[in-house]
Design a binder for these strands. Structure first.
Lengths: 107, 107
DNA sequence: TTTTAATATTGCAATATTACGATAATAAAA
DNA sequence: TTTTATTATCGTAATATTGCAATATTAAAA
């Protein structure tokens, strides 16, 4: 037990839940908001800005990268993380499609 | 450790993350989809439909209720769970507002 | 080459989540 | 009133997540 029984759900349901799950942490919400207001991002800024340890920030960035929401570019010894706007839009569409199809049949 | 450091984030960030988090489980996605296609819902149907134990389904329903997404009506010895459409729309708006404000400043 | 700075990875402790059996609670039916 | 059916709650086991210190990695700077 303790493990989500993914095999009993459709791929679409698992994917959608995964999207929500990655966005379901205030640090990751804050990271996305901060990056979007900088037009660029250096990880060390985030450590000061957010107030979590460097290792923790790096871990959260990894999850956002895993979803394809962030793309990282090496700039010397720094990393510049940016939001992948195509992926961003595609995810927004997926979520809206879920909301719209669900509500249209609602009692 | 193991606990999210909510106190370092804004209320808005915590609330938004909480919304995403509750939606971030395939069983809860499946429950919402199933309810919306029934126009009404009896918990026992869900147990058969989803394939998780009754106690587990009841727990997931509780989380969705906690978010205000579901409203339950007692019908004799049954519960009829419905999606609260106002709350549903309000959550969809919150999410879209997050997506739109974030992307508008993106690099 | 050595040092320095930035980021990633590893290992671990603490807490949270998921799932389910057992049981309680509730209300209709017999 | 007793039984039956439905849903909620409790207790617990298994796994996942969060967070951080320590360390590794990488590349520029000295």
């Amino acid at each position: 037990m303790g493990t989500t029984k993914s095999q009993i759900f459709t791929e679409q349901q698992n994917d959608l839940a995964q999207l929500f799950k990655v966005l379901g942490h205030p640090a990751r919400v804050a990271i996305l908001q901060y990056i979007s207001h900088q037009n660029a991002c250096i990880c060390n800024d985030l450590v000061e800005e957010i107030g979590l340890a460097q290792a923790t920030i790096s871990q959260h960035l990894k999850e956002l990268k895993g979803l394809g929401l962030l793309k990282g570019e090496v700039e010397g010894k720094r990393m510049c993380y940016c939001i992948d706007i195509d992926r961003w839009n595609s995810i927004q569409n997926q979520l809206n499609s879920f909301f719209n199809t669900t509500k249209s049949n609602c009692c």
